[in-house]
């Protein structure tokens, strides 16, 4: 399988500002799973047998070791990490290799939520968007997949062709939040 590199657009990473770090991650394979009509339960069973994860509920992530299954839309999830066991899954879902379609970054550190709040309309408060939650939403004008995996840790997926724009938007927001005194002290 050909692997296109996101490196040229992300050469500046990691970027740090005010205790926050924006870094590039290598998620491994990203495979879109779109169950055939009525095959959702069968797909979830096959996923559990083959990869140890379930087909996630909306907005959730099913995790087993380094394998993750992110809900990615109506009747769609992304298997992230291993190459998919096509023989086990293809009877139940359309599988599409999207490994090279996405740039995957992380934003960690106090104030990460405030940075994202400048770019996304998503409600990022902890009681709504907890660690372990994921959402398809907007980052600036870009479609993105945002996942929260720690109190101050977020994974950001954008279309690979938009990497430079995402990097610019996030870096500027990090500088701005830092310049204005850092993280919002309110809880969540």
């Amino acid at each position: 399988m050909a692997r296109l590199l996101v490196t040229p657009a992300t050469g500046a990473l990691p970027v740090t500002a005010g205790g926050m770090t924006l870094s590039l991650t290598d998620p491994g394979c990203i495979t879109s799973l779109a169950p055939w009509r009525g095959a959702g339960m069968a797909l979830s069973k096959a996923l559990r047998a083959a990869h140890g994860v379930d087909f996630p509920d909306p907005g959730r992530i099913s995790t087993s070791g380094t394998t993750r299954c992110l809900w990615a839309g109506r009747d769609q999830a992304f298997l992230v990490g291993p190459a998919p066991d096509s023989a086990a899954l293809a009877d139940h879902a359309a599988l599409t290799d999207q490994s090279d379609a996405w740039a995957v970054m992380r934003l960690d550190g106090p104030g990460a939520r405030d940075v994202l709040a400048r770019l996304t309309p998503l409600d990022l408060r902890a009681q709504v968007f907890e660690p372990g939650h994921t959402a398809r939403t907007l980052l600036g004008q870009m479609n993105a997949v945002l996942s929260r995996d720690a109190a101050n840790g977020y994974e950001i997926m954008v279309f690979r062709s938009m990497t430079a724009t995402a990097l610019h938007e996030l870096t500027e927001a990090m500088k701005s939040v830092t310049a204005q005194g850092g993280a919002d002290p309110s809880p969540g």
Partner: peptide, 11 residues
């Protein structure tokens, strides 16, 4: 019904 309350910009 799937995502919960979201801003109009997403629609």
């Amino acid at each position: 019904p799937l995502c919960g309350a979201r801003d109009r910009r997403e629609f």
